[in-house]
Write a protein that binds this DNA or RNA. Sequence first.
DNA 1: TGCAAACCTGCGAAGATATGCAGATAATGG
DNA 2: CCATTATCTGCATATCTTCGCAGGTTTGCA
Lengths: 121, 121
Amino acid sequence: MPSRMIVSRELADFLKMIAHPDRLRMIEELRLGEKDVSSIAAALSLPATRVSQHLAQLRAHRLVDERRAGRNHFYRLSHPHLAAWIVDALQFIDVRNRLAEGDHIDSARALWTAQSRNTSH
Amino acid sequence: MPSRMIVSRELADFLKMIAHPDRLRMIEELRLGEKDVSSIAAALSLPATRVSQHLAQLRAHRLVDERRAGRNHFYRLSHPHLAAWIVDALQFIDVRNRLAEGDHIDSARALWTAQSRNTSH
DNA sequence: TGCAAACCTGCGAAGATATGCAGATAATGG
DNA sequence: CCATTATCTGCATATCTTCGCAGGTTTGCA
């Protein structure tokens, strides 16, 4: 059995699952703790249906855990460290070329990890 | 300008670029240094055309650098640390469920980072 | 009960990816 | 020059993703 191929496929599936702008922002949104669907949708200015669909995918891949309270569904990261690991990826991206001059990786990192209320989202 | 959306899009593009079993194995193959197209193709048992196409994509996203020597094209990781960062992702995957019983993340990591000659690829 | 709020799921069209094949380039060795 | 080796590029097809919309489920509350 080509175990190595299995690992690379699993890895690719995992990466595909998080490789979407909305889902990345959602993961970042859950960095500090659980949130319900409406809160996430409002924070990111996305239609709730879309957020729900993304969450269903993340749930299917066990990247988030669900907790129901009344009619609200609260989601949290299954691996709290995931958000930090994603931020580390910024070092591999030439963000400099695409943001305003003077910006660099550190500012991108700061921007990304800043609280929602402080950012120009 | 929604800088945060720009960052999330860049991040998603980067993740999509590496989210492919072949490309992951290629990155891993380049972990220890440069290799030419044929060597990579042979090591991974992939058609050279496909390897070349993948490399063209990675090149376009500046994830690999090219060096030509004669009729061989040698590629290396633009960010040598990339391979290690990818290996870190194994902690987020339930490899246990999909490999033979008794395997766990550490063995998956060992498998993944093992030299080609030591692995059942 | 009945209605509304908060989510979820199914479906289909549009768009993005993957991949083999044919043909094009570039360097090497007669 | 010509053939050969190593690699690249263009193209068509098959497959996967995304995303809105319509309709369904569960819970809270009057």
